[in-house]
Design a protein around this nucleic acid. Structure first.
Lengths: 232, 232
DNA sequence: CCTTCCAATATTGTCGACAATATATGGATA
DNA sequence: TATCCATATATTGTCGACAATATTGGAAGG
């Protein structure tokens, strides 16, 4: 491995957690592939100690599964898991939208409107729609989540769930939701939040996420993402 | 340490995770106390390797906090955290109740009614109210959660959140919710689920949990649980 | 008396080696 | 040829020791 790009972090274990997360999401470590501790340790130039600590963390993030005395595997995406994940996300982000309606500041609201305007401009100028949509989409959601000011909610969503969500989005990259429709929905959600209508904001956020889940589900059914078991 | 009660588990790390979780919830390891790796390792007769893996897990469970090159501390309970936790629980168990309304079998419904009848009998015979309520309360909630059939939801709730919830209940043991009121609410929730009224079930579950949170909050305000920083 | 700096100590982070378990190989038998 | 079992190999689990960092305690200076 020639990547000498040392990511500076306090501890090797944290480094590895970040790197491995990235590699799994990117697909460098294929879905369902076996993870060999000696091999990975050699590849990253570290001993197995910190590597194993990172693996424990990845397991709790739901990115790998571990079996005692057998080893770890990258998770395999499937529709049931996708739906479970998005249902959970629906509950949590719905709550986040409700809380945001109560707690968000006027300034944050203004910034969010500006953000959506930018997205609109991006779409109108028509360049790089995919990227703009993906990036903007996540940015919008993250801001709502943080506006909830609920530390537990923020942690579970941004740290645990979003890694999985990014994976599902990546592996269904071909058929993405219509960015203009998504933007309309974002606008409606933000309107509800700005008007301090918590019930409505929660409802709209839930529908928005539920709709995304359905699209991803269709994408998975078509693509039949059954490749990926390349790892011995 | 004279506890030779070897809990048989596949791996030392898993063993330690369970034991440490229990000790933290029980209060053997005081709130906010520093965790010394050498000391704990000696106490359990293991090396620091598996112990550290267990600590990584405990951190993700939210039972301890770790700082690089400094060490780990048992979490300290406070009202903000309590409210955050219960708000999250509200969102997730509310969703669980909704899903259960769609997915639960008639047999499971029957069993749940039987369970509530038993609780009623316990209360009427009036012995050991506290224990009966606590045990029965958690049992009821766990069954609803599992009836949701959502693996992600089940995992986060039963593994991540409930450890914290048990701690808050333990440290506010003095003033507990009225068991008869709780039972009435359980019955109403179950009725909604049995009638396949998902919206209502979710609403009632949320109120039920919100009410519990308020009671715990009051208890914390009165008791002012600021002791517990005994650990150097 | 308080503050600052430095050395001594203790704790955490990392490593390489050994033990325990699972997997792969290959031969014997039906 | 297929199946079963025993051996060999590889991988995971655990350990003790060393390196790096933080904490403690005391001396020097203001």
């Amino acid at each position: 491995m020639d990547k000498v790009t040392q990511i500076k972090s306090a501890t090797l274990s944290d480094d590895l957690t970040q790197r491995l997360t990235a590699e799994i999401v990117k697909g460098v470590l294929p879905l369902g592939s076996k993870i060999s501790e000696p091999e990975l340790a050699k590849r990253y130039g570290v001993s197995r100690g910190p590597l194993r600590e990172a693996l424990v963390k990845l397991e709790t993030l739901g990115l790998i599964t571990r079996t005692a005395n057998v080893g770890a595997r990258v998770i395999d995406l499937n529709i049931d898991d996708l739906l479970d994940t998005y249902t959970l996300r629906e509950a949590m982000e719905g709550m986040a939208a409700r809380l945001a309606s109560e707690l968000i500041s006027e300034q944050e609201v203004t910034e969010l409107y500006k953000l959506l305007d930018e997205h609109q401009a991006h779409l109108d100028s028509n360049h790089d729609e995919h990227y703009a949509n993906q990036y903007g989409n996540e940015d919008f959601h993250l801001r709502i989540i943080h506006a909830s000011q609920n530390k537990k909610l923020i942690r579970v969503l941004t740290q645990d769930l979003y890694a999985t969500i990014r994976m599902y989005r990546r592996y269904t990259a071909d058929s993405r939701p219509d960015p203009r429709q998504a933007l309309r929905e974002h606008k409606a959600i933000l309107d509800a939040i700005a008007n301090r209508e918590g019930d409505l904001a929660e409802l709209l956020m839930r529908r928005h996420i539920s709709r995304a889940a359905n699209l991803l589900k269709k994408a998975m059914l078509q693509n039949s993402i059954s490749q990926g078991n390349t790892g011995q």
